[in-house]
Amino acid sequence: MNWAWIDSQWPTIWQEFGQHVWLSVLPVLIGLLLSIPIGALAHRYGWLRPPLVTLAGLTYTIPSLALFVVLPGLLGTKILDPINVVVALTLYTVALLVRTVADALDTVPDDVRQAALAMGYRPVRQLLAVDLPVAAPVIGAGVRVATVSNVSLVAIAALIGVPQLGSLFTQGFQEDFATPIIVGIVGCLVLALVLDLLIVLAIRLLTPWQRAGRIGRRGRSAAAAELAEVVGPAEVIG
């Protein structure tokens, strides 16, 4: 480790870290906002689900590198424009979360759904006031996976020259110099860890009833949340 280099490069590293933060976080926020209505539709209309799941699976097979390079042509943006990275990662996030949202809504117990219907909820209000809050732990687990993998994927954009922590990897590789690479890896790990903790905290704040359930008997959604952590990227299913 060359500490003097780190010291001299600190402002640049800090700047790249900042870039990395918003390039990882923004796609999750946009992706989540898009996934909720799409996932809810896939949950509600069974026929929509297989094509959506297949589409999501196909999206995941597109190498991020290819997406970073193709998008400028499709969007009319410059190759170095960070927008390309945001759009590409939003696509991956949506691909992951649409399934998670649909599956999470499946975990809402049928008697809860029936009770809401019988009390006269209209569909949209029921989704917002009952279904989504009950499904929140599972959706949250999916958001954690999406966020952590985004942090890693953003780095690949360094190959096309968009500056962020990944730039330290290409720089170190070209200069045959390990220090920047290690700094970049540590930066990514720290960022992933901090974002993950923040999401866990947010989920806890949003679902106080989950802890209440654990005192008594294990809530179904708690078990389901555990499950969602297991779910990797969506798969191709015909």
């Binding site: 809860v112 009770a115 006269g120 009950v134 009833w209 959604s221």
Partner: peptide, 14 residues
């Protein structure tokens, strides 16, 4: 305007 009670109560867990 119609009350409805079901087997497992169907209470909202949240």
């Amino acid at each position: 305007g119609i009350g409805y009670v079901i087997q497992n109560a169907g209470l909202f867990p949240h």
